[in-house]
Computed example of a mutant assay.
Amino acid sequence: MNKFNRLIVQVALWLVIGLVIWFNQTLNTTWINENLVIFLFQVLLIYLLIFVLAPKLLFTKKYALFTIVSVCCVMVLAFIVTWFFKIPMEPHAINNMPAPGPPHDSGPRQPPSHYLFNVLILGISFSLALALEVFNHLKKKEAETIKAQNVNLENELKLLKSQINPHFLFNSLNNIYTLAGIDTGKTQKSIINLSDMLRYVLYDCEQEVVSIKKEIEYIENYLKLFALKSSKSYPISIKLNIENNGAYVAPMLFIPFIENALKHSNIDDRNNAFININITATSTEINFDVENSKPQNKVVKDGVGGIGLENVKKRLAILYPNKHSLKIVENETNFKINLQLKLI
């Protein structure tokens, strides 16, 4: 709500209050004559607060100056109303009760009493308007903070994705390079698989979420590409129990775990190594398991990689706060990861 609309709302509020009091005075025109000027000065005071005092002083943290200027404005405006717009205060009945008698000294009512009354009215108007302005400012700041946090999260996710994708491309090209010297026919097939995967990475992964079906197709293509570098099959098992293909998940969320299993299981040792992948998906939950063997002797791998697992942990914290469970179980022979995602 902009400043002008807030001014209209507050003026309308005091107008409604005045009308209610006027009806309670049995539509006495004398009451309007006595209070019209003070109402106009209420409007002026609220205008000064919304357009000048709050944005220039209060919200720039000049609190002392704001307090001094505000008090001066209330007192000066009350002074002007009292001494320059003197309206006769005719005795009249309020709610059919007689007006109070004169003071003991039987003298005329002194202006200071009327002045204090105006200070009170303007002070109440100013305080209410100030409370509404502070509330509106806090809501605006909260919205700006949430927007800034969302932008930061979006930028961080883009950065994490940009770290994952080159890693994936590097591994895939290594596989194709190895295959090129063995079988040109398989090389062509692997290039087709790679193009499908790149299409997924470049286009589908730009979305916040993708269907679990597409994510699984990407994983299957990745494993096919990996398997093509050898004429013998690898001890890799993948089991799927997909009750709802329309379930949606953040893209590229599972593949870092699979890359990690391929890298550290020494899968080339077909007699002693294994990788088991299980994915279950319902309309409310996705359960992902990957278990791989650990070689008895430490296998020396290339120094590239290792960023996937850390990135996926960060993405999980951002995308599924309080909606995911990541368990890592490791012993001397096996390494297992279980990831549960709540979709609602």
Rank of each mutant, 00 (worst) to 15 (best):
P235S: 04
M89R: 13
D204P: 01
Y63I: 13
L153I: 09
V209L: 01
S162C: 04
Y218A: 08
A54S: 11
K214P: 04
Q25I: 04
L48E: 13
E133T: 11
K224M: 04
N5C: 05
L19K: 01
V37I: 15
K141L: 06
Q207H: 11
V300I: 15
V201L: 10
L225T: 05
E90K: 08
Y222G: 02
M1D: 10
F79T: 14
H137Q: 11
Q110R: 12
T284F: 02
F288G: 01
K140D: 08
K229R: 15
Y200G: 03
R109V: 10
F41G: 03
N2A: 05
E154W: 06
N241H: 14
E310C: 02
M197V: 07
I219A: 00
N152A: 14
F59P: 07
L27G: 06
S237Y: 05
S283V: 13
E259H: 01
N5Q: 12
L120A: 12
L228G: 14
V119I: 15
N278V: 06
Q149A: 12
E285R: 14
K189W: 01
Q110N: 13
V134W: 08
G246M: 06
N24C: 09
M197Y: 03
S283R: 13
K139T: 09
I242A: 00
T145H: 10
Y47K: 06
T282Y: 09
L53I: 13
N171P: 02
P166K: 12
K298N: 11
G305D: 05
